[in-house]
């Protein structure tokens, strides 16, 4: 009694069944916008002017300053041993933090959406605290816990592990907050269907849930990576001063203090490049995900 025996099961009017497929574009919104009028034109002009004065021109100035002495000057500035050390520490710590966030952020989002237990609401609130807490305060808090006067006897001052802890603290919400809405919108019927087709829970997660979450996990992780690369306040105090665990933003700050603006701009250009790549990459990812429906 296999289903294929019934291959002849007929449809009286197949056209009726085939009818009205949804458009290939899925559920992308049709934006009903109008052209600019006089008022809105002035508004756009003002906005663009403000954005130029605040963001565009200053960031351009950084790149201009960094490359003002030619490419070789730029190259020399970013390849000094101190600059490379800082960059290596920054990139490695940020990568580690991103990887941990990808896993833990997804796990926490899952627990927040799929589980219910007393204290879930509190967990929800605590997740956001690193968003709102001043970074220097976060740094001080971590210094107290993991510094020389640690109540738990763990002195991580000036180590890479201390940097990683600080970065984990400030980037905690990114993956959670990008994955959570996708998980809420996810239809549990697809998971039940997979189970009824013989898939064990882990297989269902890997083959049905994870592919749907992946764009959100990727954007959350990318945001966390960008934030970690540029972080300053929370790592400042725990880094243990000038010559120990120094990340790139601290290195750039010291160059500013020494009035080496060209050197600082060179380091800043690298950091800026990373953030631009992440932001543009995210924009493309979002468009791709929206197209896929």
């Amino acid at each position: 009694m296999t289903a294929a025996d019934g291959a002849g099961a007929s449809l009286r009017t197949r056209d009726a069944l085939e009818g009205h497929p949804t458009p290939v574009t899925g559920r992308r919104r049709v934006v009903t916008g109008s052209r600019l009028g006089a008022t809105s034109g002035i508004g756009l002009g003002t906005a663009v002017l403000w954005l130029s004065l605040l963001v565009l021109i200053p960031l351009a100035a950084v790149v201009a300053k960094a490359t003002g002495g030619g490419w070789s000057g730029f190259w020399n500035a970013i390849t000094t041993p101190a600059a490379l050390d800082a960059l290596r520490l920054t990139v490695l710590s940020s990568l580690a933090v991103s990887a941990i966030n990808a896993v833990m952020g997804t796990l926490i989002a899952w627990v927040l959406v799929r589980d219910s237990f007393p204290g879930r609401r509190l967990l929800e609130v605590v997740i956001d605290i690193p968003f709102a807490l001043p970074t220097i305060v976060a740094g001080l808090v971590l210094l107290i816990l993991y510094g020389p006067t640690s109540p738990i006897g763990v002195d991580l001052l000036g180590t890479q592990r201390a940097i990683v802890f600080a970065l984990l603290f400030v980037t905690l919400p990114f993956v959670v907050r990008t994955v959570q809405p996708v998980l809420i919108g996810l239809d549990t019927e697809a998971e039940e269907a997979a189970a009824s087709l013989g898939a064990a829970p882990l297989t269902t997660f890997r083959r049905i849930v994870l592919p749907v979450l992946l764009p959100a996990i990727a954007s959350g992780t990318a945001l966390a990576f960008a934030r970690a690369m540029g972080e300053y306040g929370s790592v400042l105090l725990i880094s243990g001063g000038v010559n120990r665990a120094r990340v790139s933003s601290m290195y750039a700050f010291q160059q500013i203090q020494n009035y080496d603006y060209t050197g600082a701009a060179a380091t800043a250009t690298i950091l800026l490049l990373v953030s631009l790549v992440v932001i543009v990459g995210l924009d493309l990812l979002q468009r791709w995900a929206a197209r896929r429906g």
């Binding site: 009694m1 025996d5 019934g6 099961a9 007929s10 009286r12 009726a16 069944l17």
Partner: peptide, 15 residues
Amino acid sequence: ELRDWLRRLHDEVHV
């Protein structure tokens, strides 16, 4: 249409 078709399908598949 689908209702009709399910009936026919079942007549042939017998699951």
